[in-house]
Design a protein around this nucleic acid. Sequence first.
DNA 1: TCAATAGTGTCTATGAGACACTATTAA
DNA 2: TTAATAGTGTCTCATAGACACTATTGA
Lengths: 214, 214
Amino acid sequence: MADTEYRDPSGKRLADYPHPSVAVDTAVMTVVDGELSVLQICDAVDDDWRLPGTFVHEGERLADSVLRSLREKAGVEGLAPRQLHVFDDPSRDSRGWVLSVAHLDVVPAAALTIDPGRARLVAVAASGAMVHAHDDILEYAVAQLREDHRERPDPHGLLAEPFTMTELRRLHEVVLGVELQPDTFRRAMVGRLVVAEGKRAEGPGKPAGLYRRG
Amino acid sequence: MADTEYRDPSGKRLADYPHPSVAVDTAVMTVVDGELSVLQICDAVDDDWRLPGTFVHEGERLADSVLRSLREKAGVEGLAPRQLHVFDDPSRDSRGWVLSVAHLDVVPAAALTIDPGRARLVAVAASGAMVHAHDDILEYAVAQLREDHRERPDPHGLLAEPFTMTELRRLHEVVLGVELQPDTFRRAMVGRLVVAEGKRAEGPGKPAGLYRRG
DNA sequence: TCAATAGTGTCTATGAGACACTATTAA
DNA sequence: TTAATAGTGTCTCATAGACACTATTGA
């Protein structure tokens, strides 16, 4: 793949330039126990909590680096990593010149099997400071997640289908961090959903209709 | 800055990992002659038109790499580069494993002095294919630019202050690629502008009031 | 005066929000 | 029946869009 004969106008080969280390760091987000939560791992070196990440391997796509880091560092199978931002402050990482490409991956809690020795899920509201400015990454991730949930119903498939309108609303309330009017929410979302068979009753009260994502 | 003693859990130093080349490629956008336009340079190697870019120098911030590449490759003084996306397809660049961090920089035409031997401004609508999938970068840039112009008046300062409401509307029409209703546009924007002194008449007709960005 | 451009009054359609009402179940 | 939850009818208010009107200039 690499054309080792390539030389730039000044005669230098690609390998003659100094190269940064390129890492991916990922905010794996989910909703569990009515809380918007993020996956943290315990850093083997610093014994600090941080977001899972890894250096990019040769010829690897960034999304594949993300999925590999989640498997190796947290024993978690990721889904669809999405680029957020490149953090490029040269003093950001004490190990040297590292560019970190922040990612967001949203995974239903049901698909996350957490090994307590390696990883934990922490509510975003309660998540303390992490190393290497990983809090900044979390901020980007939450902002992106909220943006996604403002228009579309359950855009990342956090709910098991079929789901009730109330379940969908509670999900959006948790992600957005605000209470939503049931009637307004229903009218905004019903056109973007498909009706599913059957009803579901949670305790007393009229059974709720069921929906699937469009 | 670099801690050369750092070793990861498997005993490898940072430098022992293979490293990608990291480049920045920038869509410098402006509006000239009523056209949304992009700066292209003529590639010295391939003799193809492309977006200006460079490899990132050691310890350099990405935004500084962008500004340097614009100075060196196009003789242009950039303003405020903004990250768009990392293009990471390993086969994207024939020279080898290159990650390209796409940027957008919006510069008023008045601040762009184009050396015809090195660079040119091309209307986006008429811009043909560029090398290394630089067309993808342009798509991201245009989408971002339109997003910015949907809410805020002249968000990147393309107009010289003070300006008339009609000048502002024509700018937004060019960027968004649609015609806008003068009255609706005025009412949407007037609250986000500050009134400036004086009037300006362009030919016959009532002289227009002047505004500045908030 | 007329032509041309700037700016406003106002009607209408749309949609968000709020509230009250109806609907359907368990106990 | 009552309590609880689901879902709808409808009023109000804010806003976008459209259109017509007024305002102010040069020729």
